[in-house]
C-alpha cells in the first residue's frame, strides 16, 4: 500500500466483511511525542484466534484462500516507521487495530487521501455507522456519518451528497489541525 489511507480502507473492508455495523476510525497526531496513531475499531465478532495468528499473512478466515495480507501489510508499514502494531478488544465490542508510528521516520508512508477513503466507504455502505476522529495538538474533530446525514432532508440521507459532505469535513479537519501528510 502506498499510503495509510489505503490501509485504512482495507481494514474498514475487513470490519464490514466481518459483519460490523459500527466502525470508528481515529487519526491522532502527537507532535510532542513525535507520533502518529491510526486506529480502526468495530463492533464485529472480534478475533477468534491469537493476535499473532491474525496478523500472519498466511492465515485467513476466508474459505478457498491461503493468504490474508491486509493486517500483515499494515503491521509491516507501521513497524517500518519505527512503530508499534497492536490488536486488542475494542470498546465497541469487536476488534481494534492500532498502529503508532514515528511521524518523522524516513520510512513512514504518508497519510494519503483520507477523505476519499472515508467517502468511498460512506458511498458503498449506506447502513454503516461510521465515525471518525482527527486529533492533533490537543484539539480534535469528530465526524459521524449518521449526524452528517441528519443535516439533510430525509430523501437525501442515503445520497452521495452525504459522502461528499463527510469528505469535505474530513479535509477541513485535517487542514484545521495541520495534521502531517
Amino acid at each position: 500500500m502506498r499510503d495509510l489511507s489505503l490501509h485504512i480502507l482495507d481494514l474498514i473492508e475487513n470490519s464490514v466483511r466481518a459483519g460490523a455495523s459500527t466502525v470508528f476510525v481515529a487519526i491522532d497526531e502527537s507532535p510532542a511525542e513525535g507520533t502518529l496513531k491510526v486506529t480502526i475499531e468495530d463492533n464485529g465478532p472480534g478475533l477468534s484466534v491469537t493476535p499473532e495468528q491474525a496478523a500472519d499473512p498466511f492465515y485467513t478466515t476466508k474459505p478457498g484462500k491461503k493468504t490474508g495480507l491486509g493486517l500483515g501489510f499494515f503491521r509491516a508499514s507501521v513497524e517500518a516507521a519505527g512503530g508499534a502494531f497492536m490488536l486488542r478488544r475494542s470498546r465497541l465490542g469487536g476488534l481494534a487495530v492500532e498502529g503508532v508510528m514515528q511521524i518523522g521516520h524516513v520510512d513512514r508512508i504518508p497519510l494519503g487521501d483520507l477523505a476519499l477513503t472515508i467517502s468511498s466507504v460512506v458511498c458503498t455502505n449506506p447502513k454503516l455507522d461510521l465515525r471518525c476522529r482527527i486529533s492533533a495538538n490537543g484539539k480534535e474533530h469528530n465526524i459521524a456519518v449518521s449526524e452528517v446525514a441528519e443535516e439533510f432532508p430525509a430523501p437525501e440521507r442515503d445520497g452521495l451528497a452525504v459522502a461528499r459532505c463527510v469528505s469535505q469535513r474530513i479535509k477541513a479537519g485535517l487542514a484545521d489541525l495541520s495534521v502531517s501528510e
Binding site: 500500500m1 489505503l6 480502507l9 482495507d10 473492508e13 476519499l116 477513503t117 468511498s120 458503498t124
Partner: peptide, 15 residues
C-alpha cells in the same frame, strides 16, 4: 475492495 484490489487502484476506480 479486497487488499489486492485496493493495492491495484480500486479506490480510484470507485472515485
Amino acid at each position: 475492495l479486497g487488499t489486492c484490489g485496493i493495492a491495484a487502484g480500486a479506490r480510484d476506480v470507485l472515485a
